[in-house]
Structures are given as C-alpha cells and as structure tokens.
Amino acid sequence: MNYKDTILGLIFLALLVAIWHIATSLQLVNALFLPTPLETIQTLYIQLIQTQELWSDIFATLYRTIIAFILAAIAGITIGLVLGYSKLVHSSMGTAVDFARSIPATALFPLFLLFFGIGDEAKIAVGVWAASLIIMINTAYGVRYANKIRLMVAKAYKLPQLETFTKVILPEAAPHIAAGLRIALSLTLIVVIVTEMFIGTSMGLGHRIIDAQLVYRVPEMYAAIIIAGILGYLLNHLLQLAEKKVIHWSGR
C-alpha cells in the first residue's frame, strides 16, 4: 500500500466516525444501542490507560489465538502435504476432510468442552480444529496443482525424490499455504472470541463483550469490539509482511 492509499484510507475512516458522531449526537440511533464515538474513546482511554483492565483480556485472547494458530499451522501443513502428495491418502481421506470442514467449528464447542474441560484447552482446541482444516486443504491444493512444467524439469534433471519435495514441491505450494494461513488466522481469532463468550472464561475479549452486553454497559462493549477489530487487523498485516518476505516471487 502506498502513501496515497494510506491517506485515502484514513480519510474514509474519519468520514465513517463523523457519520457515527452525527447519527448519535442527533439521536438518530437509540443511545442504548450505539454510544457516541467520544464515549467509546473515553471508555477505551479509561480501560487501556487509567485502569488498564483491558490489557489482561487482550493478552488472554492473543495468547489463545496465537497458540491455536501455531498448532494449526504445524498440523495443517504436515497433513496437507501428505494429503496433496499421496493419491492414496487423498482418495481415502478426501471425503472425510470435506465433511469435517463443513461442520461449523463453533457447533463442536460443547463436544470439546467434554473432552478438554472448561479451561483454555477447549478454546484453543476449537481454534486448532477450525484453522488446521483450512490450512490443510490449501496446502494439499498447492501440492496437487504444482506447476507441471517445473515438475517435468525436476524429473528431466533426475532430481532425487527428497530434493524434489524440499526444493520444488514445498516452495510450489508455499503461496497456497500462505493464503490458507491468512484465512486461518482470521478464523482462529473469530473462533477464540466466540468461545470466550461461553462458560468457564474469566478473561478475554469475547468474555468482556458478552459481560458488557448483559449489563448494558454498551460503551464498554464497543470498546472491546474495536480492540478485537484492531487485533485482527494487526495480526493479518503482520502475516502479510512475513509472507511478502518469504515468498517474494509469488505473483511476479
């Protein structure tokens, strides 16, 4: 993104906040559902800087998201590589994987509670489940649709099988893996926040959002929602930066 795009993006954002301000100050929207931007920012200021109570929630959500994402990446890439490489594995596991990813991950949360208890483990496990399936499918796709000509080059030059895998097939799949990771990261954050809204949570942005909503502390709810948005935005950008560095050749 260049300098001009950044400016335009900020102007548009400011415009949205202005509309929000007008809508609330003219009382076009019930103040019970939507506080003014100022109130929301005040709440954010109090919770982030004065009482600093929001930080422990941010770190709790971030911790669960990152742990779940890393575990999902390890599992998803490993299984995805096998799934994409071996025709036998693909034809035997393909349908099961397709079915598994069709189940909304959050529908499985009660099941995971049974297995993992009400601690962090259950929340992380749902995140891992949802994210690893996406990464797995993207990785397998990347391997299966590796460039045919480059595979022919590796074969014509009699590159040993292991080297063909590490030097050709893995980088061939890398852009697809990266795309999977990006979707999976956003999904992990969503799933973690949703699970935090359920029992057994005393910390986390999801917990804070649902708590604030239950007692109609609406500005607090919006503050936590905005923080969740910023978190997702930053995580996604970090991953994109890493992606540009690692797979610099992609799309050129």
Binding site: I149, R150, V153, K167, P171
Partner: peptide, 18 residues
C-alpha cells in the same frame, strides 16, 4: 543417462524461488 533439457516455456521452466 543424463539429458540437459532446455524447455520451450522459459517463464515456467525456471524455479522462481531460486
């Protein structure tokens, strides 16, 4: 045997990550 193969489609025959 070893064959040094020069392919027609040079855009795709080189490894872009190398």
């Amino acid at each position: 045997a070893k064959c040094g193969f020069v392919f027609q489609n040079f855009h795709e025959a080189l490894f872009p990550w190398m």
